[in-house]
Computed example of a mutant assay.
Amino acid sequence: MTSPQSGVPLAAIVDAAVDPRDCESAVRTDADGALVTFTGTVRDHHDDRPVTALRYEAHPRAAEFLDRVCARYRSGEIRVAAQHRVGDLAIGEIAVVVAVAAPHRAEAFSVCAAVIDEIKATVPIWKFETYADGRSEWQTPTC
């Protein structure tokens, strides 16, 4: 599904840099009093181990899973968009964005938190971390 106001997909797995403004423009209208955006970035550690590199891989149908999560929280007044990046990401790069527009902030914050939690729990995306000691390992499906 694509946003009528911006032409941006409302849920996408992408292999290039993610811009939070794309998700925001996909959902925001003049009727909204709130626009909440969650931006997840690649951090430099995991469980107290220094991370030097990270790669995300996704199931071929991961975009369908992502769209189902977003659709579950959309209503007439609440709009949701999300993008998750795959491929090699550097420390500090954006991995995932969720944007929620709603008439009021309470709904926007609540829905945004629920969407990112559900993405982490249900969308088949895996990360492969490389550590400063040269070792590397797959992590469980997560964002």
Rank of each mutant, 00 (worst) to 15 (best):
I94F: 00
I94N: 03
F128D: 13
D133M: 00
P50K: 12
H104D: 02
H45R: 02
A106E: 15
R72A: 15
E129F: 04
R43W: 05
T29V: 01
I78W: 03
V115Y: 01
V97T: 02
K120R: 12
D47I: 06
G87N: 11
E93A: 07
H46A: 10
A58L: 12
D32N: 05
L89K: 11
L54I: 07
V96S: 08
V123C: 04
D32M: 03
I119K: 05
T52P: 13
D133E: 01
R43H: 09
E118M: 06
R85Y: 07
H59V: 13
A31Q: 10
V115E: 02
P60H: 13
A95H: 06
D67E: 14
E77T: 13
E77G: 07
H104C: 02
L66P: 05
D30Q: 08
D133A: 01
A81Y: 04
V123G: 11
A102C: 01
T122Y: 05
E57C: 12
V100N: 00
A90K: 15
Q139M: 14
F65T: 14
V36C: 08
V86D: 07
R72T: 14
E57I: 12
H46R: 11
G33I: 01
I125S: 14
I91E: 10
G76F: 04
R49V: 05
A63Y: 10
R68L: 15
R43K: 08
A63I: 11
R105L: 00
A71I: 09
P60W: 10
R28D: 00
H59G: 12
H84K: 06
G76D: 13
V115C: 05
D44R: 11
V51G: 04
E64A: 15
A114D: 15
E64I: 14
E129R: 03
H104S: 00
I116T: 02
D30L: 08
A62V: 11
D30E: 09
I116W: 00
V86R: 07
W126V: 03
K127M: 13
T29H: 01
R72S: 15
D48L: 11
H84N: 09
L66S: 10
R55T: 15
L89W: 10
A34Y: 00
H104E: 02
A62Y: 07
A95F: 08
R55H: 14
E93Q: 09
E137D: 15
G92Y: 06
V123W: 04
